[in-house]
Simulated scan of single mutants.
Amino acid sequence: MKNLSVSRRYAKALMLIGKEYGQTDQYRNELDEVVDLFDANPELEMAVINPLFDKNDRRRVLVAVLEKTELSRIVQSFVMLLFDKGRIGFLRGICDFYKQLADELKGVVHATLVSATQLSAEATEKIREGLAKRTGKDVILDVEQDPELIGGIVTRIGDLVLDGSVKTQLLNMRESLKRGEIV
């Protein structure tokens, strides 16, 4: 839980700066670049994060790497602040929260659509439009398949789950029959 609150707090702080300077999208992209850099070079990440190495040496390595990037001074300073505060290990979580905040600012929401079979592009688009109408936001839809649903679809938007799967309907029927209710 602490990890989430730390990540959220730092992401919000950078978002406030991004809004002030009108650079929210740029900062989003730059945070992604730093995460991608660590993903591509796990040895670098370990050298920067691992407390077994001398802190000054780790700091010098990070400064040298950041100077070779084309990151804005704000994001470079932000990454160095994370390092200095011992929060550099939270970078991925901060990046994820920052993306959520940036999407909220733009009125974008991510949803997951799970279906038993492959849906046509037309059906997927109709569902996306329906979700956009229901939420009042632009919806980015991630489509997945799960044959165990038997039929129908399940949609998740944040905490909201819209379950229209045959599997769930059958389970509900079974529970009603167990309780002696007429279906």
Rank of each mutant, 00 (worst) to 15 (best):
K2T: 12
N3W: 09
L4G: 14
S5I: 14
S5G: 09
V6S: 06
M15I: 13
L16I: 13
L16N: 15
L16A: 15
I17T: 15
I17Q: 13
I17F: 10
I17K: 10
G18K: 06
K19N: 15
K19Y: 12
Y21R: 12
Y21I: 03
G22E: 03
Q23C: 13
D25N: 14
Q26V: 14
Q26R: 12
Y27C: 06
Y27T: 01
R28A: 05
R28E: 08
R28T: 07
N29A: 09
N29H: 08
L31I: 07
L31C: 10
L31F: 11
E33G: 02
E33W: 08
V34M: 08
V35E: 06
A40L: 02
A40H: 12
P42S: 02
P42G: 00
P42I: 01
E43R: 14
E43N: 13
L44K: 07
E45F: 09
A47K: 11
V48G: 01
I49F: 01
I49A: 05
N50G: 03
L52F: 12
R58C: 01
R58E: 01
L62G: 07
L62I: 07
L62M: 03
L62A: 04
V65D: 06
L66V: 11
L66P: 15
E67R: 03
K68W: 12
E70Y: 06
V75F: 01
V75N: 02
Q76R: 15
F78T: 02
M80W: 00
M80V: 10
L82T: 14
D84T: 06
K85D: 10
F90G: 09
L91P: 08
R92H: 13
G93D: 03
D96P: 03
L101T: 08
A102C: 13
E104Q: 13
E104R: 15
E104L: 07
K106T: 05
G107S: 04
G107D: 05
V108I: 14
V109H: 04
L113E: 11
S115P: 13
L119H: 07
T124P: 09
T124R: 05
T124Y: 02
R128N: 06
A132W: 09
A132S: 11
R134A: 09
T135D: 03
G136S: 02
G136W: 04
K137S: 02
K137N: 05
D138R: 08
V139H: 05
V139C: 05
V139T: 02
D142N: 02
D142L: 02
V143M: 05
V143A: 00
D146M: 01
D146G: 09
I150A: 02
I150Q: 04
R156L: 01
G158A: 00
D159G: 09
V161N: 04
V161H: 07
D163S: 06
D163I: 00
G164T: 08
V166A: 00
T168P: 04
Q169L: 01
E175I: 04
E181L: 00
I182Q: 10
V183F: 06
